[in-house]
Amino acid sequence: MKGLILNDLFSTKKMLRTLVFIILVFDVVWGSMGQPEAASVITSVMCISYFLNLFSYDEFYRWDKYAVILPVSRRQIVLARYAVTGLFSLVSLLVSAIYLLVMRVPLGDIAGILGAALLVHLYAAGIEIPMCYKFGTQKSRLLLMLMMFIPFGLFGGFAMLFQQAGLSLPTDIIPFVIIGAAVILGLGMWLSIHLSVRIVSRKEY
């Protein structure tokens, strides 16, 4: 499995460089405009493209076909992909944290931003990885857009409703919402891995 993880990392060397460059530009520009929080949120969302690109590379270079003839199980192939995605997500959050600390953003806000970013990453990866295995990256990218709009649309809609009704969101339930969402996403992740393994095990190349 280590070999598969290495393969993903080596494959994306160049792409990583580009991504780091773009993030750097965002962080500097928006940071200098006094909006480091916005920069951080945007760049976190951009990081989702990482694992999608891994799948694109696989398809383009047919590594997916080659991987199944190597002495690794199909389960390992899937787990390696989740591991790399997780690793990348963690690193990006860590970088965000350092950036926000340097920019002297209040700790509470940092926690909020990172928490939200983590949730977005889990949500996107959990749904998208099995999709990519099942339908390929082309269709999955479109689906991702849709998938991102649903929760944001819902939240936005609720917020609007609350506002129109003259109510304000009770701030003290936010931690519970986050914990609840994390539990649901954790379970979802487990389900996602399970589903991906199933899809790949039955796949014909």
């Binding site: 280590k2 070999g3 598969l4 290495l6 393969n7 080596f10 494959s11 060397k13 160049k14 590379y57 270079y61 047919r62 590594w63 076909k65 080659y66």
Partner: peptide
């Protein structure tokens, strides 16, 4: 079937593992 942005020594490291 390898990712062609890699070089041959990258591939050696992957295959070693």
């Amino acid at each position: 079937a390898f990712n062609q942005t890699m070089n041959v020594s990258d591939i050696g490291k992957v295959m070693k593992n």
